[in-house]
Design a protein around this nucleic acid. Sequence first.
DNA 1: CCTACCGATCGGTAGG
DNA 2: CCTACCGATCGGTAGG
Lengths: 213, 213
Amino acid sequence: MTDPAAPTDIPAADLPAKSRREQIHDVASRLFSERGYHATSMRDLAGELGMQGGSLYAHISGKEDLLIEIVNRAARQFDAALFTLRDVPLAADQKLREAMQRHIRVVADNMESATVFFHEWKHLSPGAYAQVTNWRDTIDAFYRDLVMQGIREGVFRADLDVKMAANLILSAVNWAYTWYRPGGNLTPRDVAEGYADMLLLGLRAPVPQEASS
Amino acid sequence: MTDPAAPTDIPAADLPAKSRREQIHDVASRLFSERGYHATSMRDLAGELGMQGGSLYAHISGKEDLLIEIVNRAARQFDAALFTLRDVPLAADQKLREAMQRHIRVVADNMESATVFFHEWKHLSPGAYAQVTNWRDTIDAFYRDLVMQGIREGVFRADLDVKMAANLILSAVNWAYTWYRPGGNLTPRDVAEGYADMLLLGLRAPVPQEASS
DNA sequence: CCTACCGATCGGTAGG
DNA sequence: CCTACCGATCGGTAGG
């Protein structure tokens, strides 16, 4: 009948068998990002997975642990993307391009957990909350160091306010979680390159040099 | 006894008598911004005002009406700040400076309601939700028009992607709600001027023109 | 993973 | 603005 070599009962390559734990994590990311942490009930979550509310507790220890894991995993993705860049010998403008590209890619590839990360971390209990604020400080420091490097090397304007420049860069890459649409016509790379061009060169047209024609 | 002209029993100028309705609105803005809409109970709210949960309903008609009013009031502030600027005859770069200053001022002067606005509008029921998305579109359009004006006038680079430029500007002014601290050493004007300088001129140091000394 | 249940708390109302 | 209450729903557990 059908080709005996056809692997019809093997999961498609893009659908590797996910552990139940992983499925719960994914659905929680989606629901928390769409409705918010407190507006999502454990029964909502269980319903989407075709099980009863109480059954979730065979796989997880509590609602907050789900939030902690989503937030921590997002934080680790940003870490992995940026900190390998710290000591790469690139000029500051090139390093900024690369950092923005990686940063935006993490946001774009994880829109749901990024949204949870930015909106729901305030609802963590003190321990996990403190971890996130510390993490945020290290990301801020990464971009401030990058700006300082650029000034030191003469690649960036000497009169930049380091903190404000870092804030401006962070605004651009973080705010993407509010408007980026993964299926659209802009890749994360397009956004990062466009943003980096505008940030590095400015919006204003260059003053026309007296043309020597 | 005391100077009869001294208005000692008149509320201080900075503490005008606020209606109970207004007090509820203020406390709700604070609690919703700190804890989120769904994590704030009507009893929390009443407790901060020294009353019982049920008593709130003598002044308001429901929890969501509070959220709607906070969000709508914030939207109206942005409107009032930006739309009076639409037809002002300023060059695009100057208009951008002014718009950013006004936009950031609205955020800075209303940190709590701005936070509620950006985080909680998704929890509105369909009618109010649609109003907010429409409003967001008009703000986007304002900045896109501004960028287009600048390109048309030759003030901005001709190769700008209008949508991305508008997004970058919006990122800068909106993200301020996450880090600005009203008591700090930066006024909204400082932030707006610094951001506008960086956006207009770029972070990169000008290429050294062969000095004609 | 289900059934059945726990105490706690929710937004909101009735009647005063 | 309070007391007392409503039905609904919450996160989580026991026992299987």
